[in-house]
Simulated scan of single mutants.
Amino acid sequence: MKGNNLPSVLITGCGKGGIGHALALEFQSKGYTVIATLLAHEPREHLTECGIHVFTADVTKDADIEKLRVEVSSITNNRLDILVNNAGICYTMTAIDTDVDEVSKMFAVNVFGPMRMVRFFHPLLVNAQGNVVNIGSVGGIVPYVYGSSYNASKAALHHWGNTLRVEMKPLGVSVVNIISGEVGTNILKRDVGRHLPVGSLYAPLQDEFANHVNRTPSTTTPQEYAAAVVSEAVKRHPRAWFWTGATTFIVRWGDVFLPRTYWDGLFTRWFNLDKLQKK
């Protein structure tokens, strides 16, 4: 496959209807050679029909990412202008009822996946003096109820990205953490139908929990989100943290000016946690 001289972007996790899908289309509209990854079971017509390069790759597997690196190198002349670490999964559960095996799977994708991508692709990024874009979340900032493990994975990604930014700057590579608000995607699909375990101390909230995991947020659209992210990502020197999506303004403002415990009372009311108090 012959290389080309167009700017290039590699985006992980581009399933139909998600953030990655929207980002791929937005980058393509800006004249980028777009390379997208999917898992083996995911359909690809939503990307290939648009002329986007698509490869099957699991960010938890070294062999997949090494093979992907070879393919990308042949397309981009051994350069990569932008790497978007978007692949992610969600696990929703109370902190005390957490299934650690489920969390391990989530960290393998949400945290170790971006680490693996940068480990394999950093030579191409250095060659292009490119950008790394990590898709983070307001969950990594505030104690969003039932999201302790997901929040922890995003907080880890943010802080890894912070240090990566410092270390990559002398090599000419920029790193931006996207602090995402509520975006209408399919990331919650793994949680649909999830229930509290038998005997959970949160049993009085089992109906509320079921409604939460089956919710369909009415929020920023993937297309609106992608337009904002791409506008920042294509800059030669993007902001270290870029906040975008529903709720990010209040979270950012509150994180700076309000005490940490402000969120405790807010989420207690939102999630009706007072039902747990003994009479």
Score class of each variant (00 low, 15 high):
Asn4Trp: 04
Asn4Gln: 11
Asn5Ser: 13
Asn5Lys: 10
Val9Asn: 03
Lys16Pro: 11
Gly18Met: 14
His21Val: 00
His21Lys: 00
Phe27Lys: 00
Ile35Arg: 09
His41Asn: 12
Ile52Arg: 01
Val54Phe: 05
Asp64Thr: 03
Ile65Gln: 07
Arg69Met: 06
Arg69Phe: 12
Val70Phe: 15
Val70Met: 15
Ile75Pro: 05
Thr76Met: 05
Asn77Cys: 13
Asn85Thr: 02
Asn85Tyr: 04
Met106Arg: 02
Ala108His: 05
Pro123Trp: 01
Val138Gly: 10
Gly139Ala: 05
Gly140Ala: 04
Ile141Val: 13
Tyr144Glu: 03
Val145Met: 04
Ser148Phe: 02
Ser149Phe: 02
Tyr150Met: 00
His159Tyr: 05
Asn162Met: 11
Asn162Ile: 03
Leu164Trp: 14
Glu167Cys: 12
Gly172Asn: 09
Ser174Asp: 15
Ile179Tyr: 11
Gly193Ala: 14
Leu196Cys: 01
Pro197Cys: 11
Val198Ile: 06
Pro204Phe: 08
Ala210His: 07
Arg215Lys: 11
Pro222Tyr: 10
Glu224Asn: 08
Ser231Glu: 11
Val234Phe: 13
Lys235Trp: 13
Arg236Trp: 03
Trp243Val: 08
Thr244Ser: 12
Thr248Leu: 10
Thr261Ala: 04
Arg269Thr: 15
Lys275Trp: 05
Gln277Ile: 12
